[in-house]
Nucleic acid binder design. Sequence first.
DNA 1: ATGACGTCCTGCCTGC
DNA 2: TGCAGGCAGGACGTCA
Length: 274
Amino acid sequence: MPELPEVETIRRTLRPKLAGLKFTGVRIYLPKVIAAPAPEHFTAIITGKKIIDLQRRGKYLLFGLTGGYTLIVHLRMTGSMVYREKTGPSSKYTHVVFYLDNGSRLFFADLRQFGRLWLLPVGSPDGPPGLKNLGPEPLDKSFTREIFEKKLHCRRTRIKPLLLDQSFIAGLGNIYADEALHRAGISPEHPANTLTHRETTRLYRAIRDVLQEGIKNRGTSVRDYIDGEGRAGRYQEMLRVYNREGQSCLKCGNQIARRKIGNRSSYYCPACQK
DNA sequence: ATGACGTCCTGCCTGC
DNA sequence: TGCAGGCAGGACGTCA
């Protein structure tokens, strides 16, 4: 599942390859993945546009194009964006192929077909609602411990579902939320507004640490995730709770548990997460 | 504000 | 061995 570290890794692998290239065309095999505009307009608009830069916001990839347009991509769970110079093996999960003016191609593939693309003028109201309502970037300098604490204190909900709420904080998904809570020693069911000053500090650091470690290790490839060059990440080898139900906690030795919290499965250590 | 639930979709796992 | 059914999951809309 591409979360912040995976999307950031894709951005870093794609940006040097794509910057300055021009789209010469696009082939859409599964029209429904184009959220906006209508596929025929999408094709017409993107052809001839040059890629100026590639940014990330939360789990969104933002391709800055000439003419004031942005190509917005959300990979959801199994989406990928891979750059290839030569024609590679294209799978049945490839839904969009972008042709570039150096002869290379950019492939959007997605097994579960949940990922979506938008091609819109900057500031258009037709973008994904989630992007407009996105919370702060956890790795940004402006996201301070004080701001985090303030935001936590006015929410009574359990901490795990809150960390997954993209309008509260951007970029965390199930894997990194569980890892951060374990690292901070906080139960996923702990109410947000009753976290102590020390717990808040630990959680703030844990969130930033796990995200940075994820990026350093080029992302987590539990199943499908690959970067912009088609390569898997390494962080799955370093996970301490996610996907480790029944195995022993690397901190205290007790068994890692798994249960549904807010309709999402959570992995945690009942002994050392309070 | 909060939570529950359905929707999208396919591969994989379990149970018979 | 084969098949049916359930499960997982990110965002988002709807409803209570």
